[in-house]
Design a protein around this nucleic acid. Structure first.
Lengths: 271, 271
DNA sequence: GTCATAACTTCCATTATGTGGAAGCTGTTC
DNA sequence: GAACAGCTTCCACATAATGGAAGTTATGAC
């Protein structure tokens, strides 16, 4: 029917649309009508699908308020899906150790197509605001220190593709035009890390280093989020060196056959 | 068709069955044939549904090995579903603080019908083995210190229902016959906490306290997992008192309208 | 290198399952 | 207590799911 909506038919796709809508919504949950609108479904259909999801416990409804939220089952599965990603297992102790040593907040980002997903983080005593938010959050590649570190270490053709694809968001979220971005990427490649104070979150800054696969392509990033005040240039140098050492050690332990690390390519093929 | 399989028809239910099977499977993923068998579906049907799930990125296939695993999307959603549960937000800092102070590993369990789900945990330096495993894991109510603490503080009728329902697993996993269990529950009710060295995991022990709602019913538990060697009786007393204090503070902050806390009831109705 | 085997994938006639407009509820507001 | 907004049910209709059988591609044995 709709040519550019290939594979859009079917209950599954509708269910996924509803789940996505729910994931966007606030913690108080969403009402049927709004959910139906967000997922572009007729109310009765949304209702029917949601009932199915509730039955599978992927979604919960409050009997009193009739508000829908993501279900406990999803939480459980998500926890296991994460555990399955070898990278996360390897990095967990590294994050904890870094936070122990440096007292900063550390992030592990995994590249996923044109974006990066926060796979894990360890929170330091300092209160910081981050672009990705908590675990499970996303940033476009090129935004934030981690996102820049990954983008800088992609093969040129892919880099161009990502930049083209993310152009709008890089301007809006990252406040970067293409020329500035390219200059920045060159610098990151030269230094092996990113320590730009992204102007995005006032007072906030950080450092990001890429985690490379055997071919030298970035598959993930390790980063620190801190305040401009706390992260002096000297301290920054030390931390960058430390992160690079850890990233190398992680890279050496990567299983080259881990499907999670092929994710990048997979996402590209889809387009 | 199948009378006791009410509502089992439909793609959604099949998808959920496949997801469950995937969640059980090992980290290397499952093959189509095994998945189809695990979910009791004809191979072609399993294949079709899985393809849909892959398209929605709820599931991933490795192009080379054809093995299916839970997808990144699920991880993301799971992270948000967890964030939505107010209890988790409230307890996160408590867990961190406890681990900071005591150097033990702490668990937050949420009751869910006849079981409890590990909502969060903070890991101490001591290496311990736990029944629930990591976040997202489950134990039957009555097993483990947390599970016992919850069961002990349920209304009598519900308690009986749970014990009846879990009887087999309590024997197998918990190694408890009903008489011993009932005596144990009485003790937990009297003391306000559970400090039995469950014989289940040799050398391991712990302490669990319930988190009660306004009606005095347990909705969750806070627990410590440690080794018998490390957790001396005197230390146990101190820790139990501390946990109780925290559990009370948490209970006071509970939103009585939080749908997550009505989960217990919901599960019962289903049966 | 060739054959055997096991697993994955596609096909397609059949029909069960999903569809959504309209009508009926419910609970909330004025 | 009337008006409203949102949830739920109904049901004639058609589409999208179904699964046996046949085709294709990996894997391993000889």
């Amino acid at each position: 029917m709709d040519p550019d909506d290939a594979g859009s038919a079917g209950v599954l796709h509708r269910a996924a649309r509803l789940l996505n809508a729910l994931a966007e919504g606030g913690p108080e949950g969403l009402r049927l009508t709004d959910l139906a609108e967000a997922a572009a479904l007729p109310r009765p259909s949304a209702h029917r699908v949601l009932r199915g999801l509730v039955q599978e416990r992927l979604v919960e409804v409050d009997a009193r308020t009739k508000r829908y939220t993501l279900g406990l089952r999803l939480f459980e599965m998500g926890a296991r899906a994460g555990g399955r990603l070898g990278l996360r297992q390897i990095c967990r102790p590294v994050l904890l150790r870094l936070t122990e040593t440096l007292g900063e907040t550390h992030f592990l980002l995994l590249r996923d197509g044109y974006e990066a997903v926060c796979l894990d983080r360890s929170t330091g005593p300092l209160v910081i605001r981050s672009l990705t938010g908590d675990i499970g959050g996303r940033v476009p590649l090129g935004v934030g220190q981690g996102g820049l570190a990954i983008l800088a270490f992609l093969p040129e053709a892919e880099q161009d593709d990502v930049i083209r694809h993310n152009a709008a968001r890089l301007r809006d979220v990252g406040g970067l035009d293409e020329a500035t971005l390219r200059a920045e990427l060159a610098r990151v490649r030269r230094d092996g890390h990113c320590d730009r104070s992204s102007g995005v979150l006032p007072g906030m800054t950080g450092i990001g280093v890429p985690i490379l696969d055997r071919e030298g392509r970035a598959v993930a990033a390790l980063s620190v989020g801190s305040t401009a005040e706390h992260l002096t240039p000297e301290r920054g140098q030390v931390i960058a060196a430390l992160l690079k050492k850890e990233a190398l050690a992680i890279a050496a332990r990567l299983n080259p056959f881990d499907p999670a690390l092929r994710r990048a390519g997979a996402a590209m093929e889809m387009n």
